[in-house]
Amino acid sequence: MLSRNPTVQPEINSIKAEVDEIKRRRILEEAIGQFFDKGYEATSLESIAEGLGVTKQFIYSRFRSKAELLVAICHAGAAAADQTVAFSATLSGDPAQRLAQIIRYFVRLQIEHRREVALYFREAKSLPADEGLAIDSSKQRFHRMLRGLLNEGKASGKFDIADASLAASALGGMASWAFTWFQPEGRWVAESVATELAALALRTVGVPDPLSYLADEPR
């Protein structure tokens, strides 16, 4: 009797998982495009399947419904908040240095995932209630992180602000809304936009020479 190679099955499973992830990503990309162009309500699973050149069963084998597709897309759009909170925990340096890095990092993510972000803001009303609350929790964690940093900067005399919570809302809003006007085929480069918005954030909180904190970045 031939002995089985114990390494073969894990390799097969790994390949299957990779292929399945590629298929899942294709479905999401098609759904993102159609939701973005036509709106969530006007898009059907039939039109998504047609756009992919597959049957609806192909979609159902990975997503149970159109609503589940929207949930996955909105989570991707809102993920920048939690990613930035995690990133902030790795930083050292004074509050101004960290604020510059945080805003720059967050803006990059917003631009990279601008369609998903746009769909979250536009279609959040169609999310199941529990999913909407989960995503709102991510936004609140981001706000608390930013507010804490601004309070730290205020206490140290680095920032000139009256209310850290209000300032956090203003800076977070400025960084978040880059998705509404950034166009990849336009005259702005994502890295330069991220750097410029970081400089604006530092000026907003009263840092007199913001470019000194951004000298290492492309402009």
Rank of each mutant, 00 (worst) to 15 (best):
121 F>S: 07
88 S>E: 02
47 S>V: 09
91 L>E: 08
145 M>D: 01
118 A>E: 13
172 G>C: 01
118 A>C: 08
53 G>C: 09
126 S>W: 07
109 L>R: 10
149 L>W: 12
90 T>F: 14
53 G>Q: 01
41 E>N: 09
129 A>G: 04
62 R>I: 01
139 K>L: 15
96 A>R: 06
121 F>H: 11
84 T>P: 02
40 Y>W: 13
143 H>V: 00
45 L>S: 00
69 L>G: 01
139 K>T: 09
91 L>C: 13
166 L>S: 10
107 V>E: 02
111 I>N: 07
169 S>H: 14
49 A>W: 02
98 R>L: 12
166 L>A: 13
45 L>W: 08
113 H>T: 07
127 L>W: 05
132 G>E: 03
73 I>A: 04
161 I>T: 05
39 G>W: 03
113 H>A: 11
120 Y>F: 15
108 R>F: 04
76 A>W: 08
59 I>Y: 04
122 R>I: 00
171 L>R: 02
166 L>V: 11
43 T>A: 06
160 D>K: 12
51 G>V: 02
47 S>K: 10
75 H>V: 08
53 G>P: 06
47 S>R: 13
157 G>P: 11
50 E>R: 12
90 T>M: 12
87 F>C: 00
101 Q>W: 04
89 A>P: 01
58 F>W: 04
61 S>R: 14
143 H>D: 10
98 R>S: 02
64 R>A: 12
54 V>M: 13
45 L>R: 05
138 S>F: 14
103 I>A: 04
90 T>C: 12
38 K>S: 12
122 R>A: 08
44 S>H: 03
143 H>C: 07
139 K>V: 02
106 F>C: 05
162 A>H: 07
128 P>E: 01
123 E>I: 00
80 A>F: 13
38 K>F: 15
154 K>N: 14
83 Q>Y: 11
144 R>I: 05
115 R>S: 10
139 K>N: 08
137 S>W: 13
84 T>R: 02
63 F>S: 07
119 L>E: 00
50 E>L: 10
69 L>C: 09
113 H>N: 15
79 A>D: 13
102 I>S: 06
69 L>D: 06
112 E>S: 11
102 I>T: 07
115 R>C: 03
102 I>Q: 01
145 M>Y: 03
148 G>Y: 14
165 S>T: 01
140 Q>W: 09
149 L>T: 09
148 G>R: 10
58 F>Y: 15
113 H>M: 08
124 A>D: 07
156 S>L: 15
133 L>G: 09
66 K>W: 07
46 E>R: 14
58 F>C: 02
78 A>G: 08
68 E>Q: 11
70 L>Q: 04
117 V>C: 10
89 A>W: 04
43 T>E: 12
118 A>R: 11
80 A>E: 03
164 A>N: 01
86 A>M: 09
68 E>G: 00
102 I>V: 05
81 A>L: 04
146 L>I: 10
156 S>R: 15
109 L>P: 01
106 F>Y: 15
88 S>V: 06
99 L>Y: 06
146 L>V: 06
53 G>A: 08
128 P>H: 05
123 E>Y: 00
63 F>L: 06
137 S>K: 14
78 A>M: 15
89 A>D: 12
39 G>P: 14
51 G>C: 05
128 P>T: 01
129 A>L: 12
59 I>C: 04
126 S>E: 08
125 K>V: 07
52 L>H: 10
80 A>V: 02
106 F>S: 08
169 S>G: 12
174 M>T: 00
65 S>G: 04
149 L>R: 08
136 D>G: 07
170 A>T: 03
